[in-house]
Amino acid sequence: MLAAKQRSASDDQILSLLRTEQTFEQGFRLLIRTYQERLYWHIRRLVMVHEDTDDVLQNTLIKIYRGVLQFEGKSKLYTWLYRIATNEAITFLQQRNRYTTNPIEDTENNLANRLRADTWFDGDALQAQLQDALARLPEKQRAVFSLRYYEEMPYEEMAGIMGTSVGALKASFHHAVKKIETYFRESDHL
């Protein structure tokens, strides 16, 4: 069986398997194996905590499973997958924010506190400070920062995922960097 042991595949190979009903499941299993780690880390940078990441990633993969036949191939497959993952993570965070009384302050503290309580985070003080600073960014700006800073994604590809112009993304990234720098300065880490 093609998909039984194969760990990853090209987009063309995945899509050709997905287009046939008999090989659809094989194709989807291959899609998971190929993209699960990249999607996981992209979501993890946004929601920060492993358990939340797991929930969002599973929901993302289910949405992909249901909608992959509507993928028209106008963009690269991973761009389409990242777009779904980004939207799913932002929706998750926004839904959780609705239950807080003071959205801005509580959301920041909530996210930072959840990260400190996460058994799957053991970063040093500086990394914890960076995560605190990221938690204070608006969700979309955090997504832009994460794609650029951690994944080194070109702005042109980010534009396809975020649905924004390259200029707006550059401005957003620069603004995020300045906010983080200010946070570190105010915390006497600089």
């Binding site: 985070f121 970063g123 500086l126 960076l130 720098e181």
Partner: peptide
């Protein structure tokens, strides 16, 4: 923009799976 962020990238970010 912020050279300290460049140095932070080189270390382990502390997230585990």
């Amino acid at each position: 923009l912020a050279p300290f962020l460049k140095s932070l990238r080189q270390g382990d970010d502390g997230h585990r799976v």
